[in-house]
Design a protein around this nucleic acid. Structure first.
Lengths: 119, 119
DNA sequence: TCCATATTTCCATTTTTATCGAAATATGAA
DNA sequence: TTCATATTTCGATAAAAATGGAAATATGGA
């Protein structure tokens, strides 16, 4: 992941409605839910919802798949995973800076891996 | 962490210059570096840099501390940690959705903890 | 076909954010 | 004091993003 890409993804999440949509899908699981169900749960008008859904799709945070008249949206977990890895990349010089998640991919840790996804 | 707060933090990171600043500080370690050094490394004019630094400070992603004529900025690791925990909260219904970081704080995992930081 | 529903696109408007020169402020050194 | 450097604030402008009604499109059922 490159910095411009990461910034776009973060900007997409940096809006209350889109973040709420994304979390709803993260918690809904791989099957996802359809657009109108999202709109009802969050109280967002059609046009606005569609705008946010396409924004989230464009940056790769969610995926939409049509099933008859509905479009089921689901979270793209791998994008979130890459984003978190990007944020934690080379962080804190080996100290335990992220105790809640253990997400820190320190130089010391990465030394034992075969491939480095970012260099 | 609440959703409005998380969205503000994500929006702050969702700008190429601010993300570059934040990563520079994440990798610089706890001592941090001063504003002019950031400006030189990233090629950002004074006024613009100051705007972004205060934005990052306001949402709690970085901290500035004056040392004589310089202000040393450093990353607030705990805010990043909380943000990542927020994103991964209740994700994916127990499946291994975040293999790169293992950051997923699933219901199954949390069942073994005493306190839940978000509920 | 005709209708109902799901979703998107169009469009005009409003709101928010970013940019950066110039001036102001802060600190310490000579 | 006077000067040099570090950083912020001011202010005007430009650029980008968000909003949502109305119309258009897509799909399947009657």
């Amino acid at each position: 992941m490159e910095i411009l890409n990461a910034a776009e993804i973060l900007a997409a999440l940096g809006h209350e409605s889109r973040l709420a949509i994304f979390r709803l899908l993260v918690q809904a699981g791989p099957d996802g839910i359809n657009a109108s169900a999202i709109g009802e749960q969050l109280g967002i008008p059609n046009a606005t919802l569609s705008f946010h859904l396409s924004h989230l799709s464009r940056v790769g945070l969610i995926k939409g798949e049509r099933e008859s008249r509905f479009i089921h949206y689901s979270a793209a977990y791998e994008t979130m995973d890459e984003l978190i890895a990007f944020l934690a990349h080379n962080c804190c010089q080996g100290k335990a800076c992220l105790p809640k998640t253990s997400a820190c991919d320190s130089v010391a840790k990465r030394r034992n891996k075969k491939t480095d996804p970012q260099e």
